[in-house]
Design a protein around this nucleic acid. Structure first.
Lengths: 245, 245
DNA sequence: GAGTGGTCTAGACCACGAG
DNA sequence: TCGTGGTCTAGACCACTCA
């Protein structure tokens, strides 16, 4: 059995994917759409909610419902071998960074294996494609491994410069451990990323350890599920040697 | 500003987490709760929807709303080194398997790099903890790498026997490529896993290649976001040798 | 101020589950 | 049959955006 709001969302979806409604365009108001489909407004809204969850439609309070631009799909490359894959897909990416100093506590302290109160540098990164935000990252490094000239709050830079800067200072990495989970965004994350709070996000907790076993970086990434995924490539031959040898 | 349904969901959440409402218990009916909080039924339902999205409450049509049992958190170990981590956490796990033969087509054919129509074996696995489903997997292997005595549909087995059976038959793996994404479940997945369709799931596409470059397994995993996550561990030293050497 | 979505209300009718 | 949740309606009132 097909519910009425499913029928409507299916219809709108095909109209969007076939290009009858173009990207960036505003949909008719909810009241207009409701009368067009001869349903009540709440029913029409639940149809739109489906499309929001798929990332096809963006609601803007006071302005209307908009067809999202066909988002460039971002691939997060796991295991630290970021260069090729990520650079290829994220060419037109702009990253704004806010750097601050703070003291470790809670989950950050736990992940980094340092006592609460340890001095850290925090980088809050928000990557954009054009005007629309793409992904959110909070990166923590021990204070002594952060660039001496810590750029202050509000700094905006383009490109992936931060990661490169950090890489210079830190010793060779021995292990990267990435914890991946799927969940709904917090209201704050939804607002920052301008996504519906019904759109699933991929949350990655990344902990990098150097050869001495010291945690040199902890990162919390939030990637909208409609335009981001993650890839992990494992060469089993070398892995097996380690595990079995 | 706190919306009324947020206040209610917060209140119910603390009642659940502090144990004032115990696991497995049925909540009062929606009408009763609505009058208790002096809100309308739809408003109360949106409060419950929040808790469903967090996996704390399970709605059962015709019976009521139930506090979920504190789910055992499952960790999917990436990169093929399943043994230790997964075995430790999934001790009490029961897996039912349905095996069928079919011909490759669509995405499966693409991933496996075989022409449409190629003979494959499909294993549809549903793991349970007690009565509640835990994760869903569709595994495809070339027909010649599947056990000769293909257990027929409806077969139910306990433990991780299938993976072991498959491992015997196939040659050494060279590479495992895992594509991870976050999304909402399809209505079918939600029904099978008995989860709210508002609960995010972690979807893993796993492709395993042997030393000759042949794809020996493609798997589609669906893990409920409230009780499953994935871990990927990369030894950078060995990885670097491969990439840079 | 006009138009939009956000939240909420009150109640109808249907579908499912259990006794 | 009865109580439950599932879907839908029709409309009130508030908040946000933009001219």
């Amino acid at each position: 059995m097909a519910s009425r709001h499913r029928v409507i969302s299916d219809d709108l979806r095909t109209q969007i994917s076939t290009g009858r409604i173009k990207a960036g365009e505003r949909l008719p108001s909810e009241a207009q759409l409701a009368s067009r489909y001869t349903v009540s407004v709440p029913t029409l809204r639940s149809a739109l909610a489906v499309l929001q969850g798929e990332g096809l439609v963006e609601k803007v309070h006071g302005r209307g419902n908009f067809v999202r631009h066909p988002f460039q799909r971002i691939t997060y490359a796991g295991g630290g071998h970021t260069p090729d894959v990520q650079a290829a897909t994220n060419a037109a990416l702009c990253v704004s960074v806010r750097a601050t100093r703070l003291r470790a506590r809670g989950r950050v302290a736990t992940l980094m294996g340092v006592p609460a109160g340890t001095s850290l540098a925090e980088f809050v990164c928000l990557s954009h494609e054009g005007r629309s935000p793409h992904s959110l990252a909070r990166i923590y490094v021990p204070r002594d491994l952060a660039p001496a000239a810590l750029p202050e709050s509000g700094e905006v830079s383009c490109g992936e410069g931060i990661d490169a800067e950090l890489a210079v200072l830190r010793p060779a990495l021995a292990e990267i451990r990435e914890h991946v989970s799927a969940r709904l965004p917090t209201p704050e994350e939804a607002a920052t990323l301008r996504i519906s709070s019904a759109l699933a996000v991929l949350a990655v907790e990344r902990v990098a350890t150097d050869t001495t076993g010291r945690v040199v970086q902890a990162a919390f990434l939030v990637l909208p599920g409609d335009r981001a995924d993650a890839v992990f490539i494992t060469r089993t031959v070398t892995e097996k040697k380690e595990v079995e040898g």
